[in-house]
Lab assay of single mutants.
Amino acid sequence: WKITIYDQENFQGKRMEFTSSCPNVSERSFDNVRSLKVESGAWIGYEHTSFCGQQFILERGEYPRWDAWSGSNAYHIERLMSFRPICSA
């Protein structure tokens, strides 16, 4: 599993790669995730830290803005603060 997060939209700004769970992006000096690329595996992104709040399934691909992973939710969530890989047995 591999995911790359960015602190600006369209894959700009600070970037960081992960191959395992991140319970709080702010502990990695990110205020928020504004864009991301899922390089391999599937991940679950969460609205809040500690894997809480609205969940987003993140499959392999590029997500240049928050609405790319938020989709058409009843209330739009511009925040992604934690994530972890989906492990299959």
Rank of each mutant, 00 (worst) to 15 (best):
K14D: 07
T19Y: 14
I86C: 13
T4M: 14
I3P: 01
D7I: 02
S50Q: 12
G13N: 01
D31C: 09
S88L: 07
S72M: 14
I86Q: 14
Q12R: 11
F83I: 05
R34S: 05
E27S: 09
G41N: 04
E17S: 13
I86M: 15
K2A: 05
S70W: 06
E47K: 00
G61N: 00
Q12C: 10
Y46P: 03
A68Q: 08
S50E: 10
N73F: 06
R28S: 10
E47D: 09
S40T: 09
R28T: 11
P23K: 10
R28Q: 10
A74M: 13
A42K: 15
I57F: 08
H48W: 05
L80E: 01
H76F: 12
E59C: 12
W43E: 02
R15A: 13
I77P: 12
R79C: 10
Q12N: 10
S50L: 13
E78S: 14
V38C: 01
G71N: 14
N24K: 03
E27Y: 06
F83Y: 01
W69G: 07
I57D: 05
S50T: 06
T49K: 10
R84D: 04
A68F: 08
Q12L: 09
I57A: 10
E78Q: 14
R60F: 07
R84A: 11
Q55A: 13
R65I: 05
T4S: 06
E47H: 05
R28N: 09
D7R: 03
G61W: 03
Y63H: 05
G53T: 03
P85M: 04
S88K: 10
A74F: 11
E39A: 12
E9T: 09
S70F: 05
V25E: 06
V33S: 00
N24Y: 03
S72Y: 09
A68H: 08
G13D: 04
S82V: 00
F56K: 05
Q8E: 09
S29H: 11
W66I: 09
D31A: 08
C87E: 13
F30D: 00
W43L: 02
I44K: 04
A89F: 05
D67L: 08
H76V: 13
W69I: 14
R79V: 09
S50W: 06
G13V: 01
S35N: 01
E9P: 10
R34P: 00
M81N: 06
C52Q: 14
R79D: 05
S50C: 08
C87M: 12
N10W: 07
T19R: 07
L80W: 01
I77V: 15
E78D: 15
E78A: 13
A89L: 07
N73D: 14
E17I: 10
